[in-house]
Design a protein around this nucleic acid. Structure first.
Lengths: 300, 300
DNA sequence: AGCTACTGCTGCATTTTTTGCAGCGTCTTG
DNA sequence: CAAGACGCTGCAAAAAATGCAGCAGTAGCT
């Protein structure tokens, strides 16, 4: 909306940290942008940016101000979507920050279902580790966060939690492929592949072993779950994943997934959350509702 | 704030229920107001007012919108005051050491103006002669010094200087009361009243006469400017004062002030100063700013 | 030291937006 | 049916925003 242009600009400058760079992104000249900032500072009676030789940075007045205008901007989005809802059309945008496990199957499926009903709603899906996803809520980069074992900031308001047991994924030719459930000590007899540290699965497994003398020695470590999953097929390694990151029906040909005994690795939790105290735009609220129901049905 | 003008207007229209009447209240034409409303409705894609023969009324989209913008407006107020608190212009203490001439009119007036904006800021005003005022800065007894013809210690950092011509103050019945400007030798034909030695006016006048044979022989000598000023009314004496120590508009009934010819007594300077190198508290800096501007306007 | 590249900022001419005036059509009201 | 009030529109003037060119300051590099 037009009357929010200045504060949208300022939001962008605060994110980018440079007036000239932000001006490029916003497709205006740095002059115009600079003047808008000076005008706002004039109105507030106080500068909101520190001028550094390499750009600008919010000072504490700026922190307060920008925090407020981000609320204002997303509130306005909500209002627009409420108004649009009145006239029957649902439009809007849903922005999601989520863990890697949600990307391959769960979210694409859910978004497809939703968009079939409401084609005017657009989506943004952003891969963030546990900490960054929560941060994205705070700075309004995302409306929803779907995170495995989050840090749980004070600003994070849980909508739903879902238990997720860790599974071992391996080739169907693997010696352990026929076990009903896997014991961790058995797995560790074989080469293993693990996600890197910030990810929830790795975190859970290290937590499980913290009291024992055992150390995780992955032959493969990667921050790509997809790579890890594929690698179980090409080499006889065991990878680890949570059910939501696995196909709903059947594991791809040639690989199997077996639960790790709960005595060895406890279940983790996926959290769906939003920024505390925020009233979500209609489209977002509805989507949150949909995936909440889907998860409740799927994981009792 | 400027960028909220449109929504403030809309808020008013919603309250009043008529574009033309609201325009009057807002002191703009109905045309401009009407166009702003149309523009917002355009942006929202939906009207927010029902047009009735007697004016306008919010429709349900408008209810949502106006509810939101009212929140936004009061939030902005809150943010502004948070920022004001943070920057300290709202609270704090300003401590001033100054010459006697500033006490009767100038400072009370300026402090009143400032405190009207920032009632939580407190003031301390201390009468100090030229040397003592500067010393007060050094030992942090005062944040600001306003001094006529100061000693100018090394630690004294000048913020602004203002020229002040010496005036003769006398009863309107005095023989010299009708002169445009006064020559010093004419004044000395009459009884004169002078401040005691440490004061700037006395200093200036003695400086002016140092090369001549003339000696100042006051019939009254006092360290109270107020006493001197009043005494001109009761006895036919001439007293001496600088403009800032005189009322802004009119000299009190019965007395007149006439400038002393610059060939006889040179202009003196009022210095506003602070401790060298010190970063002043925000409240102090603001007040210094205010009086600086006030003085610049008053004595060009 | 000198140089380059990058920063935020400013004066001026130009473009865009906003405003005010006059007037139109519609509707209630006396 | 006339009067008055309402929201709205065409057009010209006023005001604001924008873009260009250029300045001054600083970090990092040679």
């Amino acid at each position: 909306m037009k009357h929010l242009t200045s504060i949208r600009y300022i939001d962008t400058v605060a994110r980018i940290g440079s007036i000239r760079k932000a001006a490029e992104v916003l497709a205006i000249t740095s002059t115009a942008l600079n003047r808008r900032i000076l005008a706002i500072e004039e109105e507030l009676g106080v500068p909101i940016f520190e001028r550094l030789p390499r750009g600008v940075r919010l000072n504490s007045a700026g922190e307060i101000f920008v925090h407020h205008i981000r609320n204002q901007l997303s509130d306005m989005e909500r209002v627009r979507s409420q108004i649009a809802d009145l006239s029957g059309i649902r439009r809007g945008h849903v922005s999601i920050a989520c863990s890697q496990a949600l990307l391959p199957y769960f979210l694409p499926q859910q978004i497809a279902i939703y968009r079939k009903e409401h084609p005017a709603v657009t989506f943004g899906v952003y891969l963030r580790d546990r900490a960054a996803a929560e941060q994205a809520l705070v700075d309004h980069t995302a409306d929803l966060a779907l995170v495995f074992e989050p840090v749980r900031l004070a600003e994070f308001q849980t909508i739903l939690t879902v238990r997720q047991q860790v599974y071992g994924v391996m080739s169907e030719n693997h010696p352990l492929a026929n076990e009903e459930t896997l014991r961790l000590r058995d797995c560790l007899q074989h080469p293993i592949a693990l996600p890197t540290n910030p990810y929830g699965v790795r975190y859970l497994m290290e937590l499980a072993l913290v009291d024992s003398a055992i150390v995780l020695n992955p032959v493969i470590e990667s921050d790509s779950f997809e790579f890890l999953r594929n690698h179980t097929l090409t080499e006889g390694v065991i990878s680890f994943q949570i059910p939501i990151g696995l196909p709903v029906e059947d594991i791809p040909k040639g690989s199997v997934a077996r639960p790790i005994d709960l005595r060895d690795v406890p279940t983790g939790l996926i959290y769906i959350g939003q920024l505390r105290g925020r009233t979500l735009p209609v489209a977002v609220a509805r989507f949150a509702d949909q995936i909440t129901k889907a998860l409740q049905i799927r994981y009792e």
